[in-house]
Nucleic acid binder design. Structure first.
Ligand SMILES: [Zn+2]
Ligand SMILES: [Zn+2]
Ligand SMILES: [Zn+2]
Ligand SMILES: [Zn+2]
Ligand SMILES: [Zn+2]
Ligand SMILES: [Zn+2]
Length: 714
DNA sequence: GAGTTTGAAACT
DNA sequence: CAGTTTCAAACTC
């Protein structure tokens, strides 16, 4: 797969010089810059390949693979649609409470309808995936102009490359973010580590849509199926908008949560407006983004209105999303919370720092996201979420959103690691991709259950029996969770944490993979070479905490000998994964480096490689960071909004922080606060790296379920 | 898909 | 905390 993809990319690049399309596009759109930017954003993930080349060719090759993977992931994201739907619903609800209904129901319902779409995706071929890729991200742009995926790609790429340089110089901060994002985009790992924003951005922009597992390749189908239909039915320009929306909504959701907890005030009115913007954004597309970015102009309302309209249609169009929804359902979970918190922090920081310049400041992040819009998006997101929550209907909506978020998050995570997700498809990927647990006796109320362990409710794809891990039994679920947490506060914490022991810091360096399993493994017969080993499954080397016998962990033996991540990756991707599934965590220390300088290709590559993904779309398990404030969320919103990562990737969490959180977090708020401090660190724009890293930390910390839970517990 | 292996989770 | 049982995933065929 990789190879082919690369090939394609290469082709595009070469083409793009010729790119009649490019010219054509330029001529078409008055706002060239925007477009270019737009492309960039959208493409960023896709076009990455091209970008990297700009920076440095060497990495590119390595990155490409990962990038490709990412794309797939992105494209996969049929989920976004769901999000979009949710968003729509939310809006609709505001106006009318039709859509809403039951959160649970929504969950299920969504999943069901969605299904139809999914199947196609699942079956979709790699090629189709590719196409979807192109079509998906490009959608915005393509919609009108590019009919052919391949052609569209080329133009994008071209623009991207050209634009990028421009943007960077001009935008400065924004650029950084963007730039980073792009870079990071290329490597999910980096995203994860480095910037929350990045993560969000990429995922949200392109990616976030389907189930993690499924997603791998599905995207295209979605894009294809959805886009066309949507275009015709809903808005044209927006074919992909749904995705965008979805992502946005996700973001919003998170934000909203935070906002609620932290500051509702901030957003209410503004946010609402913002939120619409976001939608518009998505809908409108890149254009606006560009505009804003470049000119910094704030836009406003126009967009919003269209969005609404579009949104509605979108919702309808969700059909596509439906499939994703299935997958998504599973995903919803704690992850969301974690992400949300992260986002919130970021947002907060932004606001504070930026003040009037907010937009500009925001822009950078957004850049990562879309370009400028992102800033708005963020805001909007916040606003949206809150509004939703506030509104009773909102509850339902919220759930939906959360779901979407969860997915997104998942995807992000998964993406990060996943280079190899693609594989998951294998045969039935589609259906199974989403599949989750298969519990027979635990009633999905014990950690045996992957869904429960991941902090997410069981969904349709689950094959569990006598399942109590459903929204209907929220009380029971929460209660059980508390009990388990009381016994082991870290029970729902990510299994893999970033070890900062020796290092610190940012950049420093560190050893390559400084992540490790929180408890270590106890393998006796697997040699830590199979997924039986949680360390291996998490894509991390064994540590001193491991009591394994005959450890041969390719990610690193207890002491130290680390193997080449690549090897693992390769193996994982193809070799190990017979199934195709491998999950790895992405641990990045220095995404910055990467983003900032392509210079460290090798390192970068390795790191990025470090993560891998799993094949199937199973719930993330504990590896993933789960929703942090589950307790609150559970109480307030949905218990399991947790996002599920697609795979089981592990999330790295800052060890230091985790403990703190656990201890401190008496309440979700506290958790947030803790985050905020981090965010502050991050806030310093100038130090792109630093911020990212800090953000990363935040995320990590947040993710841990424990944070929230701890609160509940004495 | 059924059956086996495996190591974590749960229990004692 | 260790030993045992239970459990569902990972793996094998
Ligand atoms: Zn279960
Ligand atoms: Zn389940
Ligand atoms: Zn279940
Ligand atoms: Zn092991
Ligand atoms: Zn180990
Ligand atoms: Zn080991």
């Amino acid at each position: 797969m990789d190879t082919p993809e690369r090939t394609q990319i290469a082709t595009p690049l070469s083409k793009f010089e010729d790119s009649p399309v490019f010219n054509y596009i330029n001529s078409l759109s008055p706002i060239k810059p925007v477009k270019s930017v737009h492309f960039t954003q959208t493409f960023s993930a896709l076009s990455f390949a091209s970008l990297p080349s700009v920076f440095t060719s060497p990495h590119v090759s390595n990155l490409k693979d990962s990038r490709f993977l990412r794309r797939h992931q992105f494209s996969d994201p049929s989920k976004p649609e769901l999000n979009s739907e949710d968003a729509k619903k939310a809006e609709t609800n505001e106006g009318n409470s039709n859509a809403t209904q039951n959160p649970q129901t929504d969950f299920n319902s969504n999943s069901v309808p969605d299904t139809s779409i999914v199947p196609p995706n699942g079956s979709s071929n790699l090629e189709s995936r590719k196409l979807s890729y192109e079509s998906v991200s490009p959608d915005t742009i393509n919609t009108n102009k590019i009919d052919n995926p391949s052609s569209s790609i080329v133009p994008f790429v071209n623009n991207h490359s050209q634009n990028n340089p421009m943007r960077i110089e001009s935008d400065i901060e924004g650029m950084d973010s963007l730039h980073n994002k792009e870079v990071s985009g290329c490597d999910w790992d980096s995203l994860i580590d480095a910037s929350d924003l990045l993560n969000f951005d990429s995922p949200s922009d392109t990616i976030p849509y389907k189930c993690p597992g499924q997603t791998t390749f599905d995207p295209k189908p979605e894009a294809n199926n959805d886009n066309p239909s949507e275009k015709n039915e809903g808005r044209k320009g927006v074919p992909e908008n749904p995705v965008m929306l979805a992502s946005t909504s996700l973001n919003n959701f998170e934000v909203a949560e935070l906002a609620d907890d932290m500051d509702n005030e901030v957003g209410s009115n503004l946010f609402r407006g913002m939120r619409r913007r976001c939608l518009v954004f998505e809908m409108m597309g890149s254009r606006r983004k560009h505009m804003e970015d470049i000119s910094n102009v704030s836009d406003s309302n126009e967009t919003v209105i269209p969005n609404d309209n579009s949104l509605i249609p979108m919702r309808t169009g969700n059909g596509n999303g439906n499939e994703s929804s299935r997958c998504i359902l599973p995903g919803i979970g704690l992850h969301l919370n974690a992400l949300a918190s992260t986002l919130v922090d970021q947002k907060v920081v932004k606001h504070e720092s930026s003040g009037s310049g907010g937009q500009l400041i925001i822009a950078p992040p957004s850049a990562a996201y879309h370009s400028i819009p992102s800033g708005q998006d963020l805001v909007t997101t916040m606003a949206d979420a809150p509004s939703l929550e506030n509104d009773q209907n909102g509850v339902t909506v919220t759930e939906d959103v959360s779901k979407a978020l969860g997915f997104v998050i998942n995807e992000e995570l998964s993406q990060g690691s996943p280079r190899k997700k693609r594989r998951r498809m294998e045969h039935a990927g589609e259906n199974e991709a989403c599949k989750r647990c298969n519990c027979k006796k635990s009633k999905c109320l014990k950690l045996y259950c992957e869904c429960f362990a991941a902090g997410v409710y069981c969904v349709e794809p689950c094959s569990c029996q006598e399942c109590f891990n459903k929204p209907i039994h929220e009380d029971t679920v929460l209660q059980t969770r508390k009990q388990i947490e009381s016994r082991n506060p870290l029970a729902f914490a990510p299994k893999v944490i970033k070890t900062s022991d020796s290092m610190q810091e940012d950049e420093s360096s560190n050893t390559p993979a400084s992540a490790r399993h929180k408890r270590g493994c106890n393998c006796k017969k697997s040699g830590c070479l199979k997924k039986y080993c949680e360390c291996f499954q998490g894509g991390v080397g064994c540590s001193i905490n491991c009591r394994c016998e005959g450890c041969k962990n390719t990610f690193g033996r207890k002491d130290g000998s680390e193997m080449d991540p690549e090897m693992n990756v390769v193996d994982e991707c193809e070799g190990i994964g017979t199934d195709g599934r491998f999950q790895k965590m992405a641990i990045h220390h220095e995404v910055d480096t990467v983003s900032a300088t392509p210079a460290t290709p090798s390192r970068f590559g390795r790191q990025s490689i470090s993560m891998i993904s799993s094949s199937k779309g199973k719930p993330p398990r504990s590896f993933l960071a789960i929703g942090s404030s589950s307790s609150q969320r559970f109480g307030k919103l949905n218990p399991f909004k947790v996002g599920v990562k697609t795979d089981k990737q592990l999330q790295t969490v800052g060890e230091d922080k985790i403990p703190e959180i656990l201890e401190e977090n008496g309440s979700p708020i506290s958790g947030v606060k803790s985050c905020s401090p981090n965010s502050k660190r991050v806030s310093p724009p100038h130090s792109g790296l630093g911020q990212r890293s800090s953000r990363k930390l935040i995320l990590q910390s947040i993710p841990s379920f424990p944070c929230l839970t701890p609160n509940s517990k004495p």
